[in-house]
Design a protein around this nucleic acid. Sequence first.
DNA 1: CGTGGCGTTGATTAACCTCAAATGTGGTGG
DNA 2: CCACCACATTTGAGGTTAATCAACGCCACG
Lengths: 244, 244
Amino acid sequence: MSHPAPLFTAGRCGDCPIRHRAVCAQCDDGELAVLDKLKTYRSFPAGQTIAWAGDPLDFVASVVTGVAILSRTLEDGRTQMVGLLLPSDFLGRPGHATVTYTVTAVTDVLMCCFRRQPFEALLHTMPHLAMQLLEMTLDDLQSAREWMLLLGRKTAREKIASLLVSLARREAALRLNPPEGRVEIDLMLTREAMADYLGLTLETVSRQFTGLRQDGLIRLNGTRRVIVPDFARLQRAAQEDAAA
Amino acid sequence: MSHPAPLFTAGRCGDCPIRHRAVCAQCDDGELAVLDKLKTYRSFPAGQTIAWAGDPLDFVASVVTGVAILSRTLEDGRTQMVGLLLPSDFLGRPGHATVTYTVTAVTDVLMCCFRRQPFEALLHTMPHLAMQLLEMTLDDLQSAREWMLLLGRKTAREKIASLLVSLARREAALRLNPPEGRVEIDLMLTREAMADYLGLTLETVSRQFTGLRQDGLIRLNGTRRVIVPDFARLQRAAQEDAAA
DNA sequence: CGTGGCGTTGATTAACCTCAAATGTGGTGG
DNA sequence: CCACCACATTTGAGGTTAATCAACGCCACG
């Protein structure tokens, strides 16, 4: 794993790269000033486990930079990723002291943290905060349900195609241009991490990548950079609605 | 399907069977009076589709009695259930005019409905409403993530056992006694509905039921009533933590 | 120049799906 | 009451997909 230092270093909320997408997005200047005083930044190196399933987590946080994964594991080691934390995503459950999944930094991660108890109090006094968290949680729920369709009913090939489509969409969302035509995607995940996300084995993931490559749906630049010549064709391979 | 008339007929919020678990649970008497004036009851017969995926839904609602399912379908007909609505569960997404899944009544269903726009306004003026909805959505998200582990990583046998455990838990939760020892479970679902929930085919569901029966983990009374002689053993077959 | 992490590929197997047929089961109308 | 129908469920045979087990290549790094 590479270890570039986070580009954004602790600063004012006004300068924050996730200011308009994170849990604080709807807050006004006065509310932001309060948050500014309570926040602390924490960084985690790539590969580090931020919290174990079942363990207490005494803070809640927004991801400022980097990528982290949420996963659950059965006793015999089978693991399933249940969520992906990208910049602006929120970690932690107000009102609950423990997390039910393991949180792991995939890249170096910078988080904007609040101690749990004071944050819960703020939720009750700042309606903007609660409403934004509700909105974000509803988004997460919708994503989780789409993922259930993928896990339960899609073939290995469709799963891989869906993952690529979804990554392209999330990346494009930051730039406000929906993906079309030729698209490039940066995989921040290993084959094993993708397997855990998709409910497959890493061998199957690898085979499906070569399958998609042989069929001309993708080209590979190294192992982590994917070039999609025709995004619409990939969408069809993913069995996705053009919308969503 | 049987068509018993709903036992609860339109009445005051104070008499409502889901008063203390639904989205209105945290509301005080004054707030409840407001809701009381805006609410309307609607009932749906067993088997009826309440809303199609992608269609506009002009109301939000709480399930008062009955069971409904949320499902998504691929173009070729493969379908995956993505949620189960039991009494007190909430339907609809404030801020969004359409639903992304199909909603179908499994039994006769009675719903306590609010027109969407006025309800969204209430959300901003009644913090108790928003907080309860947030709490319920976080619960749904957690359930969805547990389901992702099941769909992605569990075997057919473990899936069936997990479903039975989960149904026993939800039933027991209403009576505040955690399931243990001998337990009986009423399946309100057909084999096909279970298959759609678990990401299996109905034949596999049927085979696993006979497998569990032959191994003495369950006994069947008719096709819809399951007797579990030893709940802890079923939990182990489901690869579940005793907790949760 | 080894070593360990990551990725690809091949051979085999096990789990689950598909297709097909038989067996209940409850409700309806004669 | 019984014949009949629609539908849910079970069971069987055979096929497919993806998992498992195993070997090997690549590359960064000490």
